[in-house]
């Protein structure tokens, strides 16, 4: 893997360019730049409150940056709105479960394909077929790929946390994204589930780029190609896991603030 950080090529999937975010007096992010390329798994780490979720929110358009810009070079979008992401090939899972509580697991996964063309208002109203049957089959196969197809007919509130997190990933995958953003996907998973999950993400590399926020270092380190380390809203290090591990600034940030 390349060890050059923030290498921007023409095929870059996501690019944060000199982003600063201030909430009132609090500088949540200061001059943060990084990018994600196809086939790459990038980890975004940092102590609690470092600004990781804020970086995700900026990338998705939920938080407007005070300075700087977000670019999705593949679709030519700058500072996209949240509802534009799906069509631009970006899928994201939310911290926590983030499923649609009054829809079945199957419907939740089908919802991931909501942005596909077809099924306009009039077709819907007149009850004409608009690919829902095919979509149902596809949703079941994605659930199967994640090993949770048995839960298809259940409601999200009735299934275990670990299963629900995988359903959320299934919902993201059915959109066939080119960039997948995962916010603490491994929280609440046990050892065996963690291994399986890491294997799954590794398997996605051929199809998409992945950016993930995670606290569990034992999970992140062997999985990612590259790390971006945030502390107090600033990027204090980037590089391969082994480079970052030896970086004195990172050690200090973690020892000084966390644990």
């Amino acid at each position: 893997m390349s060890s050059t950080p923030v290498a921007t090529t023409s095929s870059t999937l996501l690019e944060l360019d000199a982003i600063s975010v201030r909430f009132g007096g609090l500088a949540a992010l200061t001059d943060v730049s990084f990018s994600v390329n196809p086939g790459e798994i990038v980890g975004l780490i940092g102590p609690n409150g470092a600004g990781k979720t804020t970086a995700f929110n900026v990338a998705c358009g939920f938080v407007e940056p005070t300075e700087g810009s977000v670019r999705l070079p593949k679709s030519g979008l700058t500072n996209p709105q949240p509802s534009q992401l799906a069509r631009a090939g970006v899928a994201r899972t939310l911290q926590g479960v983030g499923l649609f509580e009054n829809c079945t697991v199957l419907e939740n996964v089908m919802a991931g394909a909501q942005s596909r063309p077809g099924g306009r208002f009039w077709t819907s109203l007149l009850g004409l077929p608009h690919g829902q049957k095919e979509l149902k089959a596809e949703a079941l196969s994605v659930l199967d790929r994640l090993g949770v197809a048995d839960y298809a007919a259940q409601m999200p509130t009735a299934i275990p946390y670990g299963i629900a997190k995988r359903v959320a990933v299934a919902r993201a995958l059915i959109a066939r994204p080119s960039l997948l953003l995962l916010d603490e996907p491994a929280s609440g998973l046990d050892e065996a589930e963690l291994d399986a999950f890491a294997e799954l993400i590794r398997g996605l590399r051929s199809e998409m780029g992945v950016l993930l926020v995670e606290h569990n270092m034992d999970f992140v380190m062997p999985l990612v190609d590259r790390l971006v380390v945030l502390s107090f809203g600033k990027v204090i290090a980037t590089g391969t896991p082994s480079e970052v591990r030896q970086n004195p600034a990172v050690i200090e940030a973690y020892l000084g603030v966390d644990e």
Binding site: S83, L94, G98, C103, A111, A113, S124, L125, H130
Partner: peptide, 25 residues
């Protein structure tokens, strides 16, 4: 018809979880 269709589902998604609904487009 609308209830079981894609349009009907869109309404329910927005009601259930507006953040996730935006993320599915």
């Amino acid at each position: 018809n609308l209830f079981t269709s894609k349009t009907g589902r869109a309404m329910r998604l927005v009601r259930d979880n507006d953040v996730a609904a935006e993320l599915v487009g």
